[in-house]
Simulated assay, not measured.
Amino acid sequence: MRTLRKVAALSSFAALAFALAAAPAPASADSSKITIMVGGATKIIYLPAKLTEQLGYFKEEGLDVEIQSQPAGVDAENELLAGAVQGVVGFYDHTIDLQSKGKEVEALVIFGQVPGEVEMVATKAAGSLKSMADVKGKTLGVTGLGSSTSFLTQYLAQRAGVPSTQYTLLPVGADASFIAAIKQSRIDAGMTTEPTVSQLLKTGDAKVLVDMRTLDGTRAALGGTYPASSFYVQRAWAESHKDEAAKLARAFVKTLNFIATHSADEIADKMPKDYYGNNRDLYVGALKASLPMFTKDGKMPADGPDTVLKVLSSFSPSVKGKHIDLARTYTNEFVSSVKTAAK
């Protein structure tokens, strides 16, 4: 009986502990903290996220912001939908893809007017892979399945006449894991960003196949301006947290203005050393080449949403044939009220 009483007591204690652990935290505990998930914080295309923190602009706006990172945009998107974070720094195209699935997400600030992505071909495979028309039977690296790199890869291949059934997409992440996949010949080509592009070019392990770091290169590859890196949130959050949304937009636009009015070297001085390690010169060079991709005011380019919808509609089963209300995938409401010095 004594043993049974002990078991019962322990069971009651365990149940109480579980209930306390499962109970929601008091509203005052961290209720003001805003967590932003970045789909690869060290990627230069997402530079404004960490730079805003480094410049102290979040604090200037009275915000308590925590920046977290996931290797791929689709992982960051999942964190947002699960309610684990309040915002995401990722590609704008996710807002269109999610609307087709019944999820209301909108971009509040547009960072990049072009993807900043580059399709790199492994030097070992370059002899037989000279354009996207040659990807049949090849393995192509992307950050994650369902990520923006997979969207763009599928579109480029289809535009070159190769359907998705004739090649393999392999999620390999970014940065060091992408470089390893190239060196180990696990992928024949793959889509990545700076500074990974410059690192691969420096070592000679890969060559540029399709370059979407510039407006001209993007228009040639995709047929128009392609707004990419952005800050997006669930629409319901933006509507119920207008003050916080406005402050976040103001902080990010101040950062875009800083980028537009400072040199790559000056910007690199503001970044944590682990973002460039022992290759500061390489990082600065990659950053300098990437600066033209950033908007100065955070606004959506006029022809951007239509281009992105055209790309996704061409191959995505979830978007193709669906009515997409582009006006609900982004808003200039918050950035339009911010005055900047950049011309």
Results as ranks from 00 to 15, higher is better:
223 G>W: 03
39 G>S: 13
259 I>W: 00
310 K>G: 10
307 T>K: 05
105 V>A: 09
12 S>Y: 01
297 D>G: 01
101 K>S: 07
260 A>F: 04
251 A>Q: 11
124 K>L: 09
43 K>G: 13
136 K>C: 00
175 D>Y: 11
5 R>K: 08
247 K>W: 04
159 R>M: 10
238 A>F: 06
3 T>M: 07
205 D>R: 02
332 N>H: 03
93 D>N: 13
234 Q>N: 10
331 T>Q: 02
136 K>E: 04
155 Y>T: 11
334 F>I: 12
44 I>E: 00
321 G>A: 02
76 A>F: 09
54 Q>H: 00
275 Y>A: 04
26 P>H: 06
137 G>S: 05
262 H>M: 05
54 Q>M: 14
274 D>K: 08
237 W>G: 15
275 Y>C: 03
264 A>G: 14
126 A>Q: 10
1 M>A: 06
192 T>Q: 07
244 E>Y: 08
199 Q>D: 13
119 E>M: 15
135 V>L: 03
34 I>L: 12
176 A>Y: 12
201 L>P: 09
16 L>W: 08
342 A>T: 12
49 A>P: 15
325 D>C: 11
57 Y>G: 08
96 I>T: 04
18 F>N: 11
159 R>C: 04
262 H>F: 07
157 A>C: 11
138 K>E: 02
134 D>S: 07
341 A>M: 06
277 G>N: 15
258 F>K: 01
154 Q>D: 05
232 Y>W: 15
322 K>I: 03
293 M>I: 14
307 T>P: 05
141 G>T: 03
79 E>P: 00
342 A>C: 06
162 V>F: 02
264 A>M: 12
93 D>W: 06
306 D>K: 15
303 D>V: 09
123 T>G: 04
24 P>H: 09
292 P>F: 02
82 A>R: 14
190 G>F: 00
149 T>C: 02
208 V>S: 05
264 A>H: 12
316 S>K: 07
169 L>T: 07
28 S>D: 11
131 S>R: 06
218 T>G: 00
279 N>M: 12
37 M>L: 08
73 G>T: 05
7 V>I: 14
93 D>A: 11
165 T>C: 02
81 L>W: 09
89 V>I: 12
55 L>W: 09
